[in-house]
């Protein structure tokens, strides 16, 4: 009798993804029978065995450590970034990438002739590009008490990639960045380290809609309008460089 598929289901965080990879690896399942997906909306397959993965920090750290040591830190960076992707095939892509990586070592990240390398590279590029865009386009609003609050609605889970940038830039500020998609937030208290935490979206909405200082928002909109050269107006170019999906919270585009 033909052997059925085995499908691992894990939490959609780097820790969860790494744990699933660890478990699947340890179980030595043939590639063609294996699938690893994140918990959420998936189509149920008949005659497949489902295994739910319990996120385990120790296993996740083991994976991270051995990739960094036995392959390279660049391979680890790509794998970590790819694990933040919203694409369904990301975990299997990483799994196949690692299989090759453990065989060939640090050279793996240069092997653009191989499909498994290309795929992780593409996922990683997509996530990094989106992180860059939000580093540019997110806007803080100043609440009554001087706290800065920003909201973003990304496709990928980019918060861990942008948090460090803002914490480095604003060591003396109290700020929070909230991801509407993942319902997670980054919190930074003046002079302390930042941390990630799930957020209550209702509370965020209330905070976001509360009184806030408007003076500099008005001045920014004015500057944004004035700085454009009428004779060179080109909305298509503007849209190419700053896609509509980034503009949800960019106040200068409010009508």
């Amino acid at each position: 009798m033909e052997q059925g598929k085995i499908i691992y289901i894990c939490e959609n965080t780097p820790d969860g993804v790494f744990t699933a990879i660890y478990d699947a690896w340890a179980a030595r399942i043939a590639d063609e029978r294996l699938n690893i997906i994140v918990d959420g909306d998936y189509t149920f397959e008949l005659f497949a065995e489902y295994r739910y993965v319990e996120t385990d920090m120790e296993k996740a750290v083991k994976v991270a450590r051995s990739v960094s040591r036995k392959i390279s830190s660049e391979a680890y960076r790509q794998m970590y970034t790819a694990s933040l992707s919203h694409e369904e095939d990301k975990i299997m892509a990483i799994y196949r990438f690692l299989k090759l990586g453990f065989r060939v070592g640090a050279a793996v990240t240069d092997m653009h002739g191989r499909d498994e390398v290309c795929r992780v590279f593409e996922l990683c590029r997509n996530v990094s590009n989106e992180a860059c865009s939000f580093r540019e386009f997110l806007r803080f609003a100043e609440l009554e008490n001087g706290i800065l609050l920003a909201r973003i609605r990304p496709k990928n889970f980019v918060l861990p990639l942008i948090a460090g940038h803002f914490a480095d830039r604003f060591p003396e500020e109290n700020f929070a960045i909230v991801d509407d998609t993942a319902q997670m937030g980054v919190f930074h208290e003046r002079g302390k380290k930042w941390f990630l935490s799930p957020v209550d979206s209702e509370a965020i909405r209330r905070l976001w809609n509360s009184e806030r200082s408007q003076e500099y928002e008005r001045l920014w909109k004015l500057f944004f309008r004035t700085i454009a050269i009428e004779e060179r107006r080109n909305y298509r170019c503007q849209r190419t460089l700053c896609a509509l999906r980034y503009r949800d919270y960019m106040l200068e585009f409010d009508r």
């Binding site: 700085i227 060179r232 080109n234 909305y235 190419t240 460089l241 700053c242």
Partner: peptide, 13 residues
């Protein structure tokens, strides 16, 4: 370098 917005003429701000 980091761009923060793009004006109506498509130039980076």
């Amino acid at each position: 370098g980091i761009c923060h917005s793009f004006a109506a003429d498509g130039r980076c701000i």
